[in-house]
């Protein structure tokens, strides 16, 4: 199976790899895994008081498509409000990266990671 140029670009030069301080109240962490292939993805967001995502980091252990999907969404999320970031759909990701049908689940994983990170952030805000 051939990867698209965009997937290869993100795979070779992943954006925003790393870790944010999970103990920070303004950081939301989403952990998701794909049962079919055993890929694991961590997506973190740092949200400003204005509700805008200031920073996003990821770490993914998985195939090129999973790495590219998470790398891409960190780029997309930065500067967006959490409500707008929540609107990112797996179809947007798979379209941008030209993922083949067998790799669509990688983009689903990234979408679920966004939702999990936002949910974690919101829970932290409520218990502040």
């Amino acid at each position: 199976m051939a990867y698209s140029e965009k997937v290869i670009d993100h795979y070779e030069n992943p954006r925003n790899v790393g870790k944010l301080d999970d103990t920070d109240q303004n950081v939301g962490t989403g952990m998701v895994g794909a049962p079919a292939c055993g890929d694991v993805m961590r997506l973190q967001i740092q949200v400003g008081d204005d509700g805008i995502i200031q920073d996003a980091k990821f770490k993914t252990y998985g195939c090129g498509s999973a790495i590219a999907s998470s790398s891409l969404v960190t780029e997309w999320m930065k500067g967006k409000s959490i409500d707008d970031a929540a609107k990112i759909k797996n179809s947007d990701i798979s379209e941008e990266l030209a993922l083949p049908p067998v790799k669509i689940h990688c983009s689903v994983l990234a979408e679920d990671a966004i939702a999990a990170a936002i949910a974690d952030y919101k829970t932290k805000q409520e218990t502040k």
């Binding site: 952990m31 998701v32 895994g33 794909a34 049962p35 079919a36 694991v40 961590r42 770490k59 252990y61 689940h105 689903v108 994983l109 679920d112 999990a116």
Partner: peptide, 20 residues
Amino acid sequence: EFKEHTHKDTGFLMLQMQLR
């Protein structure tokens, strides 16, 4: 039926991430 539902058990996934 085995489905491709995303696994969301955070504690378990953190262990997996740590091992990796």
